[in-house]
Simulated scan of single mutants.
Amino acid sequence: MQFTVSGVDVAVWIPPLTAFAISFFTSMGGMSGAFLLLPFQMSILGFTSPSVSATNQLFNIVAIPSGVMRYAREGRMVWPLTWAVVFGTLPGVLIGAVARVHWLPDPVRFKLFAGLVLLYIGVRMARDLVSNRQNGAERRFRANVRSGAAAGKVDILEASATRIRFAFNGETFTVRTPALVALTFTVGIVGGVYGIGGGAIIAPFFVSILGIPVYVAAAPALMGTFVTSIAAVAFYQLLAILNPTLSIAPDWALGILFGIGGALGMALGARCQKHVPAKAIKLMLCAVIVTTATRYIVAFFL
């Protein structure tokens, strides 16, 4: 099938199948899979114009709701944390979209940028694996799942402009709201350039820096990515109108096909997440991320 916007010529079943496989695993860690789908589009499909970032954001819009709804039904959605992420990430994503179009349109330079972003995410995950950190709430959650007992829901204790407090499986967690907003703003800029909505970067921060259990971090990270991706796609469409000579608007047919596969993979991944140890999820993602990042960085200098 020929996709006119991107120029990609590929069998119609390959995009949804690829997105399904990626999203099944990444959704367990609070990532939509867009950060791995973009290298697939660039390296395998040869889709390297700025339009690829917009198409990636479109994938998020179609794919994420199925996973978010599953987490919400299980009581693991921290809504105050979610809206703080949206508030900080949204302006950053829009700034990142402008940077992608005007300063990083060249595919070679963009691949270097993508490689550095992926390498940073991989290093964060590798540090977590080496330290083998796991809080008591995660251990109790896994023990309850194995025994068939109630796995535990999130209880919101406080939500204000200064801090967010919630309880999960016998432990209380506190996040400083201003620091979170500042962090997500920076993450949003990178996510806007890369075309991932920020969620693939904020999830490791939740777990590594803020100490939020991976079983709680996934839902708000995905929801934040979903909301900011809607704004990003609309913004890319506006930029396409203002810059008619550049390929900026998303490839709607390709993005929707990716999204359909991603929605199925994300729904299944969210359902299976509580049965999979967080360490196993991080190990798999870390290996894929670091390998892809290394290829891009090395290719830039050769």
Rank of each mutant, 00 (worst) to 15 (best):
A200L: 02
L254V: 02
Y236S: 06
G115V: 06
D106P: 07
T174Q: 15
I196Y: 05
S147Q: 13
V154F: 07
V130Y: 12
T186Y: 07
A270T: 02
Q57E: 13
F113M: 11
P204K: 00
L37F: 11
G195A: 03
V86K: 00
W13K: 07
S6C: 05
P107I: 05
W103D: 04
D9K: 12
Y236N: 03
G88E: 07
A221D: 02
A278R: 00
V227W: 07
L239E: 03
E74T: 12
F47A: 15
S49F: 08
V175S: 10
T292W: 00
I256E: 01
Q41N: 09
G255V: 03
F301M: 06
P50Q: 11
I241C: 01
I44P: 00
V298I: 14
G115S: 08
F35L: 14
A63D: 03
C272Q: 04
W79M: 12
I61F: 08
M77H: 07
F25R: 01
A54W: 03
L257F: 12
L38G: 01
Q2I: 08
A63M: 07
L38A: 11
S160C: 05
M266T: 14
F35N: 08
M28L: 13
A249V: 01
T82P: 09
L36C: 00
A179C: 02
T89Y: 01
S147L: 14
L210M: 11
T184M: 11
A221M: 06
T174R: 13
A143D: 14
W103Y: 14
A278M: 01
M28P: 08
V145C: 03
A19G: 13
R109S: 12
V298G: 03
L112S: 11
S51Y: 09
R295A: 10
V290M: 12
L104M: 06
F301A: 12
A203Y: 04
T291S: 13
F35V: 15
L112R: 07
F47P: 08
D128V: 10
K153S: 15
A99T: 11
P178Q: 04
L210N: 02
Y236C: 06
G170S: 12
A161Y: 07
G75K: 12
M284V: 15
V108W: 08
N243T: 11
I156V: 15
F24L: 13
D106W: 05
T26Q: 04
V187L: 10
G211V: 06
A234G: 15
V68M: 09
T177N: 08
F110S: 07
G29V: 03
L254I: 06
